[in-house]
Nucleic acid binder design. Sequence first.
DNA 1: CAAGATATTGACGTTAACGTTAACGTAATA
DNA 2: TATTACGTTAACGTTAACGTCAATATCTTG
Lengths: 144, 144
Amino acid sequence: MGQINILQRTMTSVYTITDLAKEFEITTRAIRHYEDEGLLNPQRDGSNRLFSNRDRVRLKLALRGKRLGFSLAEIRELFDLYDNAGDERPQLEALLSKLERHRAQLEQRREDLNVMLSEITFFENQCRKLLAAGPNKAKPGASQ
Amino acid sequence: MGQINILQRTMTSVYTITDLAKEFEITTRAIRHYEDEGLLNPQRDGSNRLFSNRDRVRLKLALRGKRLGFSLAEIRELFDLYDNAGDERPQLEALLSKLERHRAQLEQRREDLNVMLSEITFFENQCRKLLAAGPNKAKPGASQ
DNA sequence: CAAGATATTGACGTTAACGTTAACGTAATA
DNA sequence: TATTACGTTAACGTTAACGTCAATATCTTG
């Protein structure tokens, strides 16, 4: 059906549920679940879901958030935040402060990531040293 | 009891379960759960748990991993990896390849993080522009 | 020595994020 | 036209990561 889409409506970019499932390597069940949780709002062709580019982007964002340990509820909050970014001053200020909190969280995680990465680097180097030292065996200075 | 510890065995660094719970702002239940899952191995004073510095470090590592979306099982795997870093060549090579895979995962997440952070920055700037433009109200170029 | 405070071990409860049938409709295809 | 592929809703099942009692033991402190 992806083929037919290309011929019929290339520019409109409509995706079936399996299109997206294949692209992002998740199950259709997961996608339906994300819709249940309010992350996606596909159109309908009869009972069949038709996902727009916007849905695709949202799915991408959602999966990214998930990889970073955010819950679907948190992701949904973010989406709502962006969507209902009212144009009046108090709303904008509220949005800004929420964004700041979110940024702080993300930067905390970036710190976490950097620490973990440097730990891994350390261990990798240890390994390489041991491998370089003894061709077959080696006794490391096993510290507690 | 923390006070008594300081007097009795300052250098040995022994922590009660509530010491750690308070320090890391988690419940004692969570700590016991981590022990059940093999992340911690406290000594015992009768039936009471006594956590060493090693346990404390592990807890810190575990919580860091959690913030980044790793499951307790994955964290445990990592710990086991580091612990059983056998000194023979095939084991070292296996360890290295696992570390590489892990590094790849972490770097993927760092990429995710950077993308999310730049998205947030973008939105923050949008907000600031709107706030600067209209002191009370403003009509943004609401794009779909 | 009674009352907290702090510890323990069960064991059942809860929530999130889907997995897994089941029962069914529709559409292209051999 | 029967099969195959893809879609639907509904509903129960599962796993992880703890929460939440309950019953009990051990200090220590007024």
